[in-house]
């Protein structure tokens, strides 16, 4: 990565040699992908902070779900969006919803009937490898459709403290943080 960026690292760093002005982190859309994302962010923050300061660092947003209704394919980037797609597209096929729910083993309690319409197939993308190249282009890479997140630093001090807490050597503060915020996490089984 250092070679690709061209600006060196550590003592030999030369920012003017940087070859790219958009560096996009694209990781799997599961929790392991998020973990890798934190590691890469830490690398940039600790070793190549200028890239972040200049606003050259971006995070790509691969879709979480492919929702196929009949022949129409929709991509959802969050659970809410997925539900929304199903709700707005699936009304015509409301018959036998319960049978289907049974057939695919959904427990009625956990999944409201809207989610399981006839002809709706949902694929959860856990890895980028699950997508065909053209699908990846369509959803994540094509500037016409994609959403990029530009990484910014608002409060350098707070950012520094966060990195030290999450990636530092001391476990207790990390444990404390996890316990305090356990409820807001999005779980992936």
């Amino acid at each position: 990565m250092i070679i690709a960026l061209g600006m060196g690292i550590g003592e030999t760093i030369r920012f003017d040699k940087l070859r790219y002005q958009r560096i996009i982190i694209m990781t799997d859309a599961d929790v392991d992908g998020e973990h890798i994302e934190t590691l890469i962010l830490t690398f940039f923050y600790r070793h190549l902070p200028d890239i972040i300061k200049e606003g050259f660092l971006y995070i790509a947003q691969p879709p979480l779900y492919k929702v196929q209704i009949g022949k129409n394919i929709h991509y959802a980037y969050s659970d809410a969006e997925k539900d929304q797609i199903i709700r707005s597209n699936g009304k015509s096929n409301k018959t036998q919803a319960d049978d289907l729910a049974k057939a695919i083993g959904e427990e009625p309690k956990q999944s409201p009937p809207e989610e399981t319409k006839k002809g709706v197939s949902i694929q959860r993308y856990k890895g980028l490898g699950e997508m065909n190249p053209d699908q990846l282009w369509e959803t994540t890479m094509n500037p016409a459709n994609r959403i990029l997140k530009q990484v910014t630093v608002e409060d350098a001090e707070e950012a520094d403290a966060t990195f030290t807490m999450l990636m530092g050597d001391e476990v207790p503060p990390r444990k404390h943080f996890i316990q305090n915020n356990a409820k807001v996490a999005t779980l992936d089984v």
Binding site: R22, V31, D32, E34, H35, E37, T38, L41, T42, Y45, I52, I59, N142, P143, A144, N145, R146, I147, L148, K149, Q150, V151, T152, V153, E154, D155, E158, A159, T162, F163, L166, F177, I178, N181, A182, V184, A185, T186, L187, D188, V189
Partner: peptide, 26 residues
């Protein structure tokens, strides 16, 4: 050409991603 752009604050992004990962593993 960049397409739709959102801003994300690095502290929040780190905390969110890290927490999701940590809690899922736990």
């Amino acid at each position: 050409e960049i397409g739709k752009l959102q801003q994300t604050e690095i502290t929040g992004e780190m905390k969110r991603a890290y927490l999701d990962y940590a809690m899922s593993v736990i």
